[in-house]
Design a protein around this nucleic acid. Sequence first.
DNA 1: TTAGGGTTAG
Length: 762
Amino acid sequence: MKWTCLRMRFSSTRFPKPPHFFSLAFFTANTINTTKFEFRPFESSWYHSTSLAYSTNETAVGVLHAKAVTSGTFQNLKESNYILNLVVKSQDLAYAQKLFDEISDRDVRAWTILISGYARLGASTMVLDLFREMRIEGVPPNQFTLSSVLNSSSSTSDLQTGKIIHGWILRNGINLDIVLENSILDIYAKCGPFYYAKNLFELMVERDTVSWNIMVGAYLHVGDMENSLSMFRSLPHKDVASWNTIMDGLTRNGRGRAALELLYEMVRNGPAFNKVTFSIALILISSLSLTELGRQIHGRVLRFGFEKDGFVRTSLLDMYCKGGKMEKASLLFRKRPMDWSRMQKSKITESTTEIISCSSIVAGYIRNGEYEDALKFFISMVCGQVKVDRFTITSVLSACANTGILELGRQIHAYVQKVGHTMDFHLISSSIDMYAKCGILDDAWTIFKQTGNPNVVVWTSMINGCASHGQGRKAMWLFEKMMHEGIKPNDVTFVGVLTACSHSGLLEEGYKYFRLMKEVYGIKPKVEHFTCMVDLYGRAGHLDKAEEFIQENSLSHLTGVWRSFLSSCRLHKNIGLGKWVSETLLRLEPLDAGPYILFSNMCTANDEWEEAANVRGLMQQRRINKVCGQSWIQLKNEVHTFVMGDRSHPQDTEIYSYLDELNGRLKEIGYSSDGKLVMQDVEEEQREMLLGYHSERLAMVFGIIRTTSEMPIRIMKNLRICTDCHNFIKYTSQILLREIIVRDIHRFHHFKHGLCSCGDYW
DNA sequence: TTAGGGTTAG
């Protein structure tokens, strides 16, 4: 099968900037038939009644402003403040600033409107500058101004600004009402030292439910679940926000079960749900994988009429995505409100709800391993002019990494650079992983080196990159450096470093790290870690130790562990033991194709042809499906996929003729195929092995034909590479002086001058 | 005062 849906390029035409609000507004104001607005300039009540309806309608705002200017009413302070407020609500601060500058005799309200606009966008420098300017102009800030600045500091975690305003309030002896006091408390609760929030709270003469809720949140923020719960229990009056705060905090701190109990309690004895409760409840249910309960909550959402709320919609959609119910999620997505198509026609969609919904869907496909669907959906987003933000990009890079679609990954990385998205740790680790998994470890290194103070996931991505490319020592060096810099490794980091040790035969080091994980970092080993250890012993040839480890740790029910062990039996040609393990696996996984294939291969390698045929027969009798071996190569923007003996490619005659010729040339310099060496889980391809038309050879030859000699050839394969193909490619790299890179299901093989980076140890 | 999406392994 061949798929070529990736014929896309990112360019300025794909991602045009949206037309600037200011110019658009004036253009339409001058051309539109304004009579339909029934503009009556002196009636402020008209402005008032239309403000809400027009607050997101750029054209209407433009018309209002244009008319206000031409009729000379713009200098009426009350009217100009209305218009300013509308523009600020539409988030075009450049336009708002221009309007503001046009207003003479600006009052405190005008200043407050503009300040709150910048505050909502998180532009704290502008907020502070304006706050300073208004005082220089002699306009005293009121409680609304102060509250607005403080709230912005709190929502953007800008403690510094909050402290400055707080200091100013104290120095000027401003009378604090409860609202302002709560705003100050909220800043320290969210970003300040906890003890400061606690002291403020205890010093408050008057406290309302909001103050108590803020303190419950403060405890949650520092991870003190017990005190937050006990404070919640002791609240004199619990309102809906109190319940929401505690349930959300518990969910975020991994206490989903406790949060669920509270949710049930709220249904029985608490206040009615609001929109926020639904959103929190859906996230909670999603984190506990209780999709059925989620479906019931969906019913309640419909009964309450909250299905159109953006937050509730995205939480619902994400719950279905995380629960693997992609069809349900797509259905919900397609039912979106009408403004979608309107916006789609005019410019890039910037509705946060739509952007988040799209990114949830992309991530949902990826979580379910449906990478191609994820990429297709992403491309439809781009074609449908939906704004692509760094959340979506992070997911899409992960899809590129897993499918090995380097060109798309590179284009997306270039796009990130071009539009200047902030490279946060999620995006950085995703990019490192993409380059590493696409075979360009150097580019992964470049990104890693450019990252200041990488977090544990970034370190882990780089360690895993080195491990998969067989650079075990480098991975260990990185791991040591990470610990030296005070970053605590997590369970995934240990999987990476143990894999690195295993793939490079670093037995002692691997054992040391396994103990370090348990004894120093207190991480309980999971199946992956046990599998790495069995792999470590087995690969190094200590099959007895590997078996002992399995028994000691009671791992004999884990198929992954036996698979790894079997792989070591193959590597060290211990056919008898391998056959025994195959039988064990067959008992453990009677419906999985893998053990049958492995068992059959073991018998073949031991000249037990009849038994091999029996196993194959049993497999057919039980109608067990096999995974089809596929290899693919990307040239320019096309992905060419091959299966064994594939004749569907347009250039198949050329490919087969070249392959036969190459086969002859390799034999002349010593290559010979050996059926007994082939004992990998490459399934059906085995039987046709002697034909020499395995998918990776077809992909490789196609690469040779279509590229120039200095270009490395990069091939991806969905199964392990077999010994014979490994040998074939080694000889090819020698005779053609070509660098050939193969990514199989476990690791990379870099073939150069007749040698492979895995050292024939995989 | 309370709410939405993303990364590393397997």
